[in-house]
Design a protein around this nucleic acid. Sequence first.
DNA 1: GCTGAAATAATAGCGTT
DNA 2: AACGCTATTATTTCAGC
Lengths: 154, 154
Amino acid sequence: MLNSALDPTDLEILRLLQRDASLTNKELSYKLHKSIATIHERVRRLKEQGYIQRIVAILDRKKIDKTLIAFSQVLLNDHTATTLNTFEKEVVKFPEVMECFQMTGTFDFILRIATRDMEEYHLFYRKLATLPKITSVQSFFVLSETKSDTAYPL
Amino acid sequence: MLNSALDPTDLEILRLLQRDASLTNKELSYKLHKSIATIHERVRRLKEQGYIQRIVAILDRKKIDKTLIAFSQVLLNDHTATTLNTFEKEVVKFPEVMECFQMTGTFDFILRIATRDMEEYHLFYRKLATLPKITSVQSFFVLSETKSDTAYPL
DNA sequence: GCTGAAATAATAGCGTT
DNA sequence: AACGCTATTATTTCAGC
Protein backbone atom coordinates (compact mmCIF):
# COMPACT_ATOMS: atom_id res chain seq x y z
CA MET A 1 0.00 0.00 0.00
CA LEU A 2 1.40 3.38 -1.02
CA ASN A 3 -0.86 5.66 0.94
CA SER A 4 -1.04 4.75 4.59
CA ALA A 5 -3.54 7.43 5.67
CA LEU A 6 -6.55 6.26 7.61
CA ASP A 7 -9.97 6.15 5.95
CA PRO A 8 -13.27 6.39 7.84
CA THR A 9 -13.42 2.60 8.23
CA ASP A 10 -9.98 2.48 9.84
CA LEU A 11 -10.88 5.32 12.19
CA GLU A 12 -14.09 3.62 13.24
CA ILE A 13 -12.23 0.36 13.90
CA LEU A 14 -9.70 2.23 16.04
CA ARG A 15 -12.45 4.04 17.92
CA LEU A 16 -14.21 0.78 18.71
CA LEU A 17 -11.10 -1.22 19.63
CA GLN A 18 -9.85 1.55 21.93
CA ARG A 19 -13.05 1.05 23.93
CA ASP A 20 -13.32 -2.72 23.63
CA ALA A 21 -10.64 -4.82 22.02
CA SER A 22 -12.49 -8.03 22.76
CA LEU A 23 -14.85 -7.26 19.88
CA THR A 24 -14.50 -10.03 17.30
CA ASN A 25 -13.97 -9.35 13.62
CA LYS A 26 -17.47 -10.69 13.12
CA GLU A 27 -18.94 -8.11 15.49
CA LEU A 28 -16.93 -5.34 13.86
CA SER A 29 -18.16 -6.49 10.46
CA TYR A 30 -21.78 -6.11 11.59
CA LYS A 31 -21.19 -2.65 13.01
CA LEU A 32 -19.29 -1.39 9.97
CA HIS A 33 -21.29 -3.20 7.27
CA LYS A 34 -18.19 -4.83 5.81
CA SER A 35 -17.20 -8.44 5.28
CA ILE A 36 -15.28 -10.30 7.96
CA ALA A 37 -12.36 -10.70 5.56
CA THR A 38 -12.20 -6.96 4.99
CA ILE A 39 -12.23 -6.20 8.70
CA HIS A 40 -9.64 -8.86 9.26
CA GLU A 41 -7.34 -7.27 6.70
CA ARG A 42 -7.87 -3.76 8.10
CA VAL A 43 -7.12 -4.80 11.66
CA ARG A 44 -4.06 -6.76 10.52
CA ARG A 45 -2.74 -3.66 8.74
CA LEU A 46 -3.47 -1.34 11.66
CA LYS A 47 -1.40 -3.61 13.88
CA GLU A 48 1.35 -4.14 11.35
CA GLN A 49 1.72 -0.43 10.68
CA GLY A 50 1.84 0.31 14.39
CA TYR A 51 -1.38 2.27 14.81
CA ILE A 52 -2.42 -0.37 17.31
CA GLN A 53 0.60 -0.78 19.59
CA ARG A 54 -0.79 -3.46 21.80
CA ILE A 55 -3.86 -5.03 23.38
CA VAL A 56 -3.97 -4.86 27.15
CA ALA A 57 -6.22 -5.78 30.07
CA ILE A 58 -7.24 -2.84 32.26
CA LEU A 59 -7.59 -3.89 35.88
CA ASP A 60 -9.70 -2.46 38.67
CA ARG A 61 -6.98 -0.88 40.78
CA LYS A 62 -9.07 -0.98 43.94
CA LYS A 63 -9.54 -4.73 43.63
CA ILE A 64 -5.81 -5.33 43.27
CA ASP A 65 -4.94 -3.11 46.22
CA LYS A 66 -3.53 -0.10 44.43
CA THR A 67 -5.60 2.31 46.43
CA LEU A 68 -3.21 5.22 46.37
CA ILE A 69 -2.34 7.01 43.14
CA ALA A 70 0.08 9.91 43.31
CA PHE A 71 1.46 12.41 40.84
CA SER A 72 5.00 13.37 41.81
CA GLN A 73 6.67 16.40 40.33
CA VAL A 74 10.43 16.11 40.25
CA LEU A 75 12.90 18.97 39.91
CA LEU A 76 16.55 18.19 39.11
CA ASN A 77 19.69 20.15 40.03
CA ASP A 78 20.72 20.69 36.43
CA HIS A 79 19.70 19.69 32.92
CA THR A 80 22.80 18.21 31.40
CA ALA A 81 22.29 15.13 29.23
CA THR A 82 23.99 13.00 31.86
CA THR A 83 21.73 14.15 34.67
CA LEU A 84 18.58 13.68 32.60
CA ASN A 85 19.61 10.29 31.24
CA THR A 86 20.67 8.96 34.62
CA PHE A 87 17.39 10.02 36.18
CA GLU A 88 15.34 8.48 33.39
CA LYS A 89 17.33 5.26 33.42
CA GLU A 90 16.88 4.86 37.17
CA VAL A 91 13.28 6.01 37.56
CA VAL A 92 11.84 3.54 35.05
CA LYS A 93 13.21 0.69 37.16
CA PHE A 94 10.82 1.42 40.02
CA PRO A 95 7.76 -0.79 39.64
CA GLU A 96 5.65 1.85 41.40
CA VAL A 97 6.27 4.28 38.53
CA MET A 98 3.62 3.64 35.89
CA GLU A 99 4.38 6.74 33.88
CA CYS A 100 7.18 9.26 33.65
CA PHE A 101 7.11 12.33 31.43
CA GLN A 102 9.66 15.07 31.00
CA MET A 103 7.74 18.35 31.14
CA THR A 104 7.86 22.02 30.33
CA GLY A 105 7.45 24.50 33.17
CA THR A 106 8.31 24.78 36.83
CA PHE A 107 9.43 21.16 37.29
CA ASP A 108 11.26 18.63 35.12
CA PHE A 109 9.38 15.34 35.36
CA ILE A 110 5.95 14.18 36.38
CA LEU A 111 5.52 10.62 37.62
CA ARG A 112 2.37 8.60 38.14
CA ILE A 113 2.85 6.34 41.13
CA ALA A 114 0.63 3.43 42.12
CA THR A 115 0.95 2.04 45.63
CA ARG A 116 -1.11 0.11 48.13
CA ASP A 117 -1.23 2.90 50.72
CA MET A 118 0.61 5.89 52.11
CA GLU A 119 3.10 3.67 53.90
CA GLU A 120 4.13 2.05 50.64
CA TYR A 121 4.28 5.46 48.98
CA HIS A 122 6.57 6.66 51.72
CA LEU A 123 8.94 3.74 51.10
CA PHE A 124 8.96 4.59 47.40
CA TYR A 125 9.54 8.27 48.16
CA ARG A 126 12.59 7.45 50.23
CA LYS A 127 14.02 5.35 47.40
CA LEU A 128 13.29 8.09 44.85
CA ALA A 129 14.79 10.85 46.98
CA THR A 130 18.13 9.04 47.09
CA LEU A 131 18.60 9.23 43.31
CA PRO A 132 21.40 11.64 42.40
CA LYS A 133 20.82 15.26 41.42
CA ILE A 134 17.26 15.58 42.68
CA THR A 135 16.42 19.05 43.96
CA SER A 136 12.84 18.41 45.03
CA VAL A 137 9.91 16.04 44.80
CA GLN A 138 6.43 17.38 45.28
CA SER A 139 3.64 14.83 45.71
CA PHE A 140 -0.08 15.14 45.00
CA PHE A 141 -2.52 12.40 45.80
CA VAL A 142 -5.68 11.33 44.00
CA LEU A 143 -8.79 11.91 46.09
CA SER A 144 -11.22 10.67 43.47
CA GLU A 145 -11.31 9.59 39.87
CA THR A 146 -13.66 11.65 37.73
CA LYS A 147 -12.60 10.20 34.39
CA SER A 148 -10.00 7.61 33.50
CA ASP A 149 -9.64 6.75 29.87
CA THR A 150 -6.98 5.20 27.64
CA ALA A 151 -8.84 6.07 24.42
CA TYR A 152 -7.81 9.05 22.34
CA PRO A 153 -10.56 11.06 20.63
CA LEU A 154 -10.64 10.22 16.89
CA MET B 1 -16.73 -19.52 45.16
CA LEU B 2 -16.64 -18.31 48.74
CA ASN B 3 -13.12 -16.96 48.89
CA SER B 4 -12.37 -14.51 46.12
CA ALA B 5 -8.73 -13.78 47.00
CA LEU B 6 -6.20 -14.16 44.23
CA ASP B 7 -3.80 -17.07 44.23
CA PRO B 8 -0.39 -17.04 42.48
CA THR B 9 -1.93 -18.35 39.24
CA ASP B 10 -4.49 -15.55 39.15
CA LEU B 11 -1.79 -12.96 39.79
CA GLU B 12 0.39 -14.32 37.04
CA ILE B 13 -2.54 -14.29 34.60
CA LEU B 14 -3.24 -10.66 35.51
CA ARG B 15 0.43 -9.74 35.15
CA LEU B 16 0.58 -11.26 31.69
CA LEU B 17 -2.75 -9.92 30.41
CA GLN B 18 -1.90 -6.41 31.61
CA ARG B 19 1.07 -6.55 29.24
CA ASP B 20 -0.54 -8.45 26.39
CA ALA B 21 -4.20 -9.33 26.36
CA SER B 22 -3.93 -10.91 22.93
CA LEU B 23 -2.33 -13.95 24.56
CA THR B 24 -4.57 -16.93 23.95
CA ASN B 25 -5.65 -19.27 26.72
CA LYS B 26 -3.45 -21.84 25.05
CA GLU B 27 -0.39 -19.62 25.35
CA LEU B 28 -1.23 -18.81 28.96
CA SER B 29 -1.60 -22.52 29.68
CA TYR B 30 1.93 -23.16 28.38
CA LYS B 31 3.43 -20.35 30.45
CA LEU B 32 1.64 -21.34 33.64
CA HIS B 33 1.79 -25.11 33.20
CA LYS B 34 -1.96 -25.49 33.59
CA SER B 35 -4.63 -26.92 31.32
CA ILE B 36 -6.44 -24.69 28.86
CA ALA B 37 -9.74 -25.32 30.65
CA THR B 38 -8.25 -24.22 33.95
CA ILE B 39 -6.91 -21.03 32.43
CA HIS B 40 -10.24 -20.45 30.74
CA GLU B 41 -12.09 -20.74 34.02
CA ARG B 42 -9.65 -18.45 35.82
CA VAL B 43 -9.85 -15.75 33.17
CA ARG B 44 -13.64 -16.00 33.07
CA ARG B 45 -13.76 -15.53 36.84
CA LEU B 46 -11.30 -12.64 36.83
CA LYS B 47 -13.54 -10.85 34.33
CA GLU B 48 -16.77 -11.76 36.07
CA GLN B 49 -15.50 -10.61 39.46
CA GLY B 50 -14.30 -7.35 37.96
CA TYR B 51 -10.54 -7.72 38.42
CA ILE B 52 -10.27 -7.33 34.65
CA GLN B 53 -12.40 -4.31 33.83
CA ARG B 54 -11.94 -4.35 30.12
CA ILE B 55 -9.69 -5.22 27.19
CA VAL B 56 -8.54 -2.25 25.13
CA ALA B 57 -6.31 -1.41 22.19
CA ILE B 58 -3.50 1.03 22.99
CA LEU B 59 -2.76 3.26 20.01
CA ASP B 60 0.43 5.03 19.00
CA ARG B 61 -0.57 8.61 19.74
CA LYS B 62 1.97 10.06 17.33
CA LYS B 63 0.53 8.06 14.44
CA ILE B 64 -2.99 9.28 15.17
CA ASP B 65 -1.91 12.91 15.47
CA LYS B 66 -2.16 13.42 19.20
CA THR B 67 1.27 14.99 19.41
CA LEU B 68 0.61 17.25 22.35
CA ILE B 69 -0.11 15.87 25.80
CA ALA B 70 -0.74 18.33 28.61
CA PHE B 71 -1.37 18.09 32.30
CA SER B 72 -3.64 20.90 33.43
CA GLN B 73 -4.00 21.78 37.09
CA VAL B 74 -7.33 23.37 37.89
CA LEU B 75 -8.16 25.43 40.94
CA LEU B 76 -11.79 26.21 41.75
CA ASN B 77 -13.27 29.21 43.58
CA ASP B 78 -14.82 27.10 46.30
CA HIS B 79 -15.38 23.48 47.25
CA THR B 80 -19.08 23.16 47.75
CA ALA B 81 -20.65 19.96 46.46
CA THR B 82 -22.41 21.94 43.74
CA THR B 83 -19.22 23.53 42.46
CA LEU B 84 -17.33 20.24 42.45
CA ASN B 85 -20.16 18.28 40.85
CA THR B 86 -20.78 20.88 38.18
CA PHE B 87 -17.11 20.98 37.25
CA GLU B 88 -16.86 17.19 37.10
CA LYS B 89 -20.04 16.85 35.10
CA GLU B 90 -18.86 19.38 32.52
CA VAL B 91 -15.21 18.47 32.24
CA VAL B 92 -15.81 14.82 31.38
CA LYS B 93 -17.76 15.95 28.32
CA PHE B 94 -14.65 17.35 26.63
CA PRO B 95 -13.22 14.70 24.31
CA GLU B 96 -9.72 16.16 24.83
CA VAL B 97 -9.87 15.21 28.53
CA MET B 98 -8.63 11.64 28.83
CA GLU B 99 -8.33 11.71 32.59
CA CYS B 100 -9.55 13.87 35.43
CA PHE B 101 -8.62 13.37 39.06
CA GLN B 102 -9.58 15.34 42.12
CA MET B 103 -6.40 15.91 44.10
CA THR B 104 -4.96 16.83 47.46
CA GLY B 105 -2.72 19.86 47.66
CA THR B 106 -2.35 23.23 46.02
CA PHE B 107 -4.88 22.65 43.24
CA ASP B 108 -8.17 20.78 42.97
CA PHE B 109 -8.08 18.73 39.77
CA ILE B 110 -5.47 17.44 37.40
CA LEU B 111 -6.47 16.75 33.81
CA ARG B 112 -4.63 14.84 31.12
CA ILE B 113 -5.32 16.48 27.78
CA ALA B 114 -4.58 15.01 24.34
CA THR B 115 -4.59 17.34 21.36
CA ARG B 116 -3.09 17.51 17.91
CA ASP B 117 -1.01 20.61 18.59
CA MET B 118 -0.79 23.81 20.60
CA GLU B 119 -3.48 25.47 18.52
CA GLU B 120 -5.95 22.73 19.36
CA TYR B 121 -4.89 22.91 23.01
CA HIS B 122 -5.54 26.60 23.00
CA LEU B 123 -9.06 26.06 21.68
CA PHE B 124 -9.65 23.53 24.45
CA TYR B 125 -8.20 25.89 27.05
CA ARG B 126 -10.61 28.61 26.04
CA LYS B 127 -13.56 26.23 26.35
CA LEU B 128 -12.32 25.02 29.74
CA ALA B 129 -11.74 28.51 31.10
CA THR B 130 -15.37 29.45 30.49
CA LEU B 131 -16.65 26.79 32.90
CA PRO B 132 -18.12 28.40 36.03
CA LYS B 133 -16.17 28.84 39.29
CA ILE B 134 -12.70 28.28 37.86
CA THR B 135 -10.01 30.29 39.64
CA SER B 136 -7.02 29.20 37.59
CA VAL B 137 -5.73 26.65 35.08
CA GLN B 138 -2.03 25.92 34.96
CA SER B 139 -0.78 23.90 31.99
CA PHE B 140 2.32 21.72 31.69
CA PHE B 141 3.27 20.06 28.44
CA VAL B 142 4.97 16.73 27.80
CA LEU B 143 8.42 17.13 26.24
CA SER B 144 9.18 13.44 26.13
CA GLU B 145 7.81 10.14 27.32
CA THR B 146 10.20 8.20 29.54
CA LYS B 147 7.75 5.50 30.58
CA SER B 148 4.11 4.98 29.73
CA ASP B 149 2.43 1.98 31.20
CA THR B 150 -1.12 0.88 31.96
CA ALA B 151 0.02 -2.16 33.99
CA TYR B 152 0.02 -2.08 37.76
CA PRO B 153 2.81 -3.89 39.59
CA LEU B 154 1.52 -7.17 41.04
C1' DG C 1 -11.41 -26.89 41.28
C1' DC C 2 -8.82 -29.44 37.63
C1' DT C 3 -8.66 -32.33 33.43
C1' DG C 4 -9.42 -34.01 28.67
C1' DA C 5 -12.34 -34.30 24.83
C1' DA C 6 -16.04 -32.82 21.78
C1' DA C 7 -18.84 -29.01 19.82
C1' DT C 8 -18.93 -24.35 18.46
C1' DA C 9 -16.85 -20.13 16.89
C1' DA C 10 -13.17 -17.15 15.33
C1' DT C 11 -9.10 -16.24 12.63
C1' DA C 12 -5.80 -16.69 8.81
C1' DG C 13 -4.75 -17.51 4.07
C1' DC C 14 -5.94 -17.68 -0.81
C1' DG C 15 -8.09 -17.08 -5.20
C1' DT C 16 -11.42 -14.05 -7.74
C1' DT C 17 -13.30 -9.66 -9.00
C1' DA D 1 -8.96 -3.13 -1.72
C1' DA D 2 -13.09 -6.04 -0.93
C1' DC D 3 -15.20 -10.39 -0.85
C1' DG D 4 -16.31 -15.50 -0.20
C1' DC D 5 -14.53 -19.93 0.59
C1' DT D 6 -11.74 -23.15 3.17
C1' DA D 7 -8.28 -24.71 6.47
C1' DT D 8 -6.53 -23.95 10.79
C1' DT D 9 -6.81 -22.52 15.52
C1' DA D 10 -9.06 -20.99 19.56
C1' DT D 11 -12.98 -20.84 22.71
C1' DT D 12 -16.59 -22.84 25.19
C1' DT D 13 -19.05 -26.48 27.36
C1' DC D 14 -19.49 -30.66 29.82
C1' DA D 15 -18.94 -35.22 32.00
C1' DG D 16 -15.71 -37.45 35.11
C1' DC D 17 -12.38 -37.18 38.81
